[in-house]
Every structure is written in C-alpha cells, then in structure tokens.
Amino acid sequence: MWERFVQDSERDIRTSQAPKEPSARARMVTERLRQQEARGELPQGWRTDPVGQGASGRQARRRKMWTIIGIPLALAVAVVAMKPSLLPGDLFGTDSGTGTSTGTGVGTGPLPAETAPETAAPASAPGTPTLDEPFAGSPAARYADGAAGIVLPEAKAVGAFSKAQVAQALEQTRALLVDANLDRGTLLGATPETVLDKVLDPKQPELVDDLRSRLRKPGKDDDPLRLFSRFDANEVRLVGDVVKTRGRTTFEAGADGAVDIHVDYTFVYALAPADPDSTEVARTIVRRVIDLQMADPAKVQVTPGRLAIIRYDDDVANSACEVYDGFLHPRLSSADPTGAPPSGPTVDPYDRSRDIGDDSENQQCGTVSRT
C-alpha cells in the first residue's frame, strides 16, 4: 500500500505538468483568436487570465505541497501504528499497567512515597514467591527497597532548634530505622551498635543499658524484638539482599522547645530455610510505630544531637507465638510449628490504615490473612 501511494503521487505530479497535444477544435479556436488579435479586435491582457491560469497554478502547487507533506505524514502514521507507545499518554488504551499508582489498587510499578495515612488495605497481588522473586504475590513487591523507603520530610526550624538541627534529628531517625530493621548484621543476630552508640541518648534513664541486656539475655519481659528485627541464622537464611520498606516520618514542635518525631514503617523480610538446597520462601512482616524526641539541652539534661525514645509499638506477622529467644521465627511448611498457635483475631499485615494498638507487651498473637 505504501508503494502504491508513492507511485500514485508521482503519477499525479507528472500528469499535472506533462504537455498535451491540442485537439483540432482547439487549434481552430487558437488560430481565430490569433487573427483577431492581429487586427486589434481583442483587448490587451486577454492572455493573462488572472483567475483561470492563477487558479491552475495554485492547484498544481497545492498538489505538490500535499505530496511533500503526505509522504512523511504517512510514514509517521505507519510507525505509530506499529508502536503506539511512542505517543504521549495512552491515547489508544494500550497501557499494560506497569506504571505507578497512588492508590491501593492492583498495579505492578513502584508505589509513590507514603505522605499520609493510607485509607484501606492494598488489593491482592497475583503470584507465588520464589527464590528469584521472593515478594511475588505480595503488596510488598511495590514497596521501596530498603532505606530508599525511608523518605524524610523537609526539615524546618522547630522550637529551640534550627533547620539544620532538625535535619540532623531526622537523619538520626533514619539511622535508627536502618540499623534496627535493615542492617544485615542486625538481621542475622549482631548487636545494632549504631542505634546504641550513636543515636540513642545515653542519659535517657536505663534505656541503652536495658536494650543491651535484652540482646544478651532475652526473655518474655525483656524482648529485644520490640525494637529490633533479628533472625536465627541456624534456622533461616535471608533471600536476596532486599528488605521491602514502606512508611512515613513526621515531626512537630514538642513541649519545652523539643522536636517530636513520629515514625510508622512496615518492613517485609523474605526468608528461606537454612538448608541451602531448599527452595521454600516465606515472608515475615514487621510494623513499627515509634515516637522519638530531641530535647532542648538548655532545659533538659540530655546529650546534644541524640534522641530519646518516648514510645514504641510493634506488630509482627508470620512469626512463632510465645517464643522469647530474641529471634523472629517465620512459619515454614517444611518445618514443625514453633511456639503456641495463634490465638488473636485475623489481621491483614499489609493494612497500614489500621492502628496497631498501644504499648502493651502482652498483645495476643493473631492469625494473618496473608504474608
């Protein structure tokens, strides 16, 4: 069809410009007009025919112009027909759903950063987790990878602190979240030294010493999992290098010129049995809500640049109930159940629109609707 279009266009141009042999009648009329012109019987300028000849010239030029424009236009139409995605937007409805989404519906692209509380649980996602794609079938597949999911708000001066000091407090908050929930050493049982030595205020009564004691000798009333994510390397191994992260950080002016920082984050861990030949994949979901404070050293006896923990809550999905050895124990189909069976209500661990409760350490271990 393209070749026919080009051939027809070239033929029209040749036809419009090629000379034609006049008919016998045309020759007789031409001769009569020439004789009348010689005798002076025709007005001057009769040959110019400003309307007829000018119109014919314009028609020829118009045909030539449309031929010049038509060829590249037809070529562009052919290219777009073969690949509609070259057009901006989605004029023909060809979007496959790989873009981002700001809602909780089904999608495959990464979610935008969470800037406000979510209003509903995310929709179900198709797929089955594998060693190559451990987050398949989970809303976490659209979460950010690791620390990229900890998006800090823009700092501004608050209370007794300058913009730069508030920015420092927010960075300290990020360091706490990373070291406690994302650092590979911490996840495999190491002590989160950044949290204990560089972030938390040693002048906060007994907090740092108490956390170190919990890590050394965990128990029901001394559970380090309330603040740290840790797994037993003799039982499970981490699948890949990614922990999926979603949440938000906010801050406001506190009492006596302090900066109060609130964090609410969900961390999703992909795990497999420690046996290197096993292909089973399980996921454990941990949500942490923590209130931190940077107090004014002029009014409170604190360490400048350090944070105090005011409140912390946690919600763990797919881990053994009533086991207090300092490690999370994901339920594996290839292993015997560990701990007591779930006794609490069924909850969706990906529903970030729900409140995870108060600071009680005796929350019931519930059944999860999905992992």
Rank of each mutant, 00 (worst) to 15 (best):
M1I: 10
F5Q: 10
V6F: 06
S9T: 15
D12M: 14
T15E: 14
A24Y: 10
R25Y: 11
M28E: 15
E31T: 14
L33V: 14
Q35W: 12
L42T: 03
W46G: 03
D49C: 11
P50K: 14
G54Y: 10
A55L: 15
K64Y: 00
W66K: 06
T67A: 14
G70L: 07
I71L: 12
I71P: 00
P72I: 01
L73V: 14
L73Y: 06
A78M: 10
V79L: 14
K83A: 15
L86R: 04
L87G: 03
P88Q: 13
D90R: 10
T94N: 13
D95I: 03
G97P: 00
T104K: 11
G105F: 00
G107M: 06
P112L: 07
A116K: 12
P117S: 02
P117W: 12
E118V: 05
A120H: 03
A121V: 04
S124F: 02
A125D: 11
P126C: 01
F135M: 05
A140I: 06
R142W: 00
Y143E: 07
Y143V: 02
D145L: 01
A147R: 10
A148P: 02
E154Y: 04
A160E: 01
F161H: 09
Q165E: 15
V166Y: 07
T173Q: 10
R174W: 02
A175K: 09
L177M: 11
N181T: 05
L182M: 05
G185R: 08
G189T: 05
D197S: 11
L200M: 11
L200Y: 07
P202D: 06
V208D: 07
D209L: 05
D210S: 15
D210K: 13
R214Q: 15
L215P: 03
L215A: 02
R216C: 00
K217R: 11
P218C: 09
G219P: 02
D222T: 10
D223S: 04
P224L: 05
P224C: 08
L225W: 00
L227D: 08
L227N: 05
R230M: 06
N234W: 01
N234A: 12
E235C: 01
V236H: 03
G240A: 06
G240W: 10
D241R: 09
V243E: 03
K244I: 04
A253Q: 14
A258S: 15
V259Q: 09
I261Q: 05
I261T: 02
H262N: 11
V268W: 11
A272M: 09
P273M: 05
R283V: 07
T284F: 03
L292P: 05
A295C: 07
D296M: 13
A298T: 08
K299W: 04
K299H: 07
V300I: 11
Q301P: 00
T303D: 09
D314G: 14
N318F: 07
C321A: 15
L328W: 11
P337W: 03
G339E: 02
A340S: 12
G344I: 09
Y350N: 08
R354L: 12
T367N: 06
V368R: 02
